[in-house]
């Protein structure tokens, strides 16, 4: 009996991974890799994969936070602004000559604080998250520009570049993916996020502390935006006030393509990862095929429409 139960668990967790949403997009990604690899010389190479991994990392990490927010039935338009705020305001520490072990925690703390402000306002004001984060996006970005006066921080000490070398960004991305895949699937936190996104009233009636969990989700999103900022600084070697511009919409695109329902309550971190990979592969493939990379937007748009059409069909079937 026990054995059987154990076996069922394995099978059912395999089902959890492959059955529902991620399976189709996983197949698309594989097919796309196969097609590009067979038609483009040098596509299937470590060098190219490194390039792709570096390309998708920054928005990828932000998208993980966005996934949690959307799963809980919310929205976060301020991710790009938080990223920029964290590295620019935190980056003033570099200007002052603070050591890296103070600057990094400082930047991450800024991300957490800004995320908390979002969460606080959303849970207290009864205003849709879309509007609150549209407002805070303006505020955070405005403060960044006012304080930095639009000036780049460059050059920066080379220790800050370490985090951006080779596969290191991707290692961070992988760690974030691992932690939040685990957190969403295996912890109380995860269950409650799904519950809140699925039916907030029901969750409340079931005794879930809705406000607390919603606030935590925005804090995580803020933290991950700041983390993504650190890596961006590492990769580029300077701090730019306009950093993270447009990340919010790109992150939403990755989440939606990854099969997470924009109404909340269903989806996965893994799906978002596959969504990001897909966008990265398409961009790399088109670049190598010498197709004008401007067409990437077209493909992204079509993919989004395709993904939400699937989602709404699934929704209607219920």
């Amino acid at each position: 009996m026990n054995d059987l139960a154990g076996k069922n668990t394995i099978i059912s967790s395999l089902r959890d991974v492959f059955k529902v949403r991620e399976a189709p997009i996983f197949i698309y990604v594989i097919v796309m890799i196969a097609v590009f690899s067979s038609t483009i010389d040098g596509f299937f190479s470590m060098k190219n994969f490194e390039i792709i991994s570096r390309q998708i990392t920054t928005i990828g990490i932000v998208s993980v936070g966005m996934t949690l927010v959307i799963l809980s039935g919310g929205f976060d338009l301020s991710v790009g602004a938080i990223l920029s705020f964290a590295i620019n305001i935190g980056g003033q520490g570099i200007v002052f000559g603070w050591p890296i072990w103070i600057v990094y925690p400082f930047m991450l703390a800024l991300g957490i604080i800004l995320g908390w402000i979002n969460g606080f306002l959303i849970t207290r004001l009864a205003v849709p998250a879309l509007i609150i984060t549209l407002g805070t996006m303006n505020i955070y970005r405005g403060i960044t520009m006012v304080i930095t006066k639009g000036v780049y921080i460059t050059p920066i000490p080379s220790v800050y570049s370490f985090i951006g070398r080779g596969y290191i960004p991707f290692l961070f991305y992988a760690a974030v993916l691992g932690i939040f895949t685990f957190a969403t699937l295996k912890t109380r936190f995860g269950r409650n996020i799904f519950a809140i996104g699925g039916a907030e009233e029901s969750a409340l009636y079931s005794g879930v502390p809705v406000r607390r969990y919603k606030t935590i989700v925005y804090i995580i999103s803020g933290f991950l935006s700041a983390l993504s900022g650190l890596i961006l600084v590492g990769k580029s070697g300077f701090v730019q006030p306009q950093a993270g511009l447009g990340y919010e919409l790109n992150a939403i695109a990755a989440v939606v393509i990854g099969g997470t329902s924009i109404f909340g309550g269903s989806g996965s971190v893994l799906g978002t990862f596959l969504g990001s990979v897909m966008l990265g592969i398409i961009l790399a493939g088109l670049t190598m095929l010498a197709v004008n990379p401007y067409w990437q937007g077209l493909i992204t748009g079509v993919l989004i429409v395709f993904a939400i059409t699937l989602d709404s069909l699934r929704y209607l079937k219920r």
């Binding site: 919409l249 695109a253 990437q296 937007g297 077209l298 748009g301 989004i304 709404s312």
Partner: peptide
């Protein structure tokens, strides 16, 4: 006709149109 959410639909068409503009 497809009954999709306007926010995401127009996000998609925004990406599409912008890429046409660049092209």
């Amino acid at each position: 006709n497809l009954r999709l959410t306007p926010f995401i639909v127009t996000l998609a068409t925004m990406a599409i149109v912008r890429s046409v503009v660049y092209a």
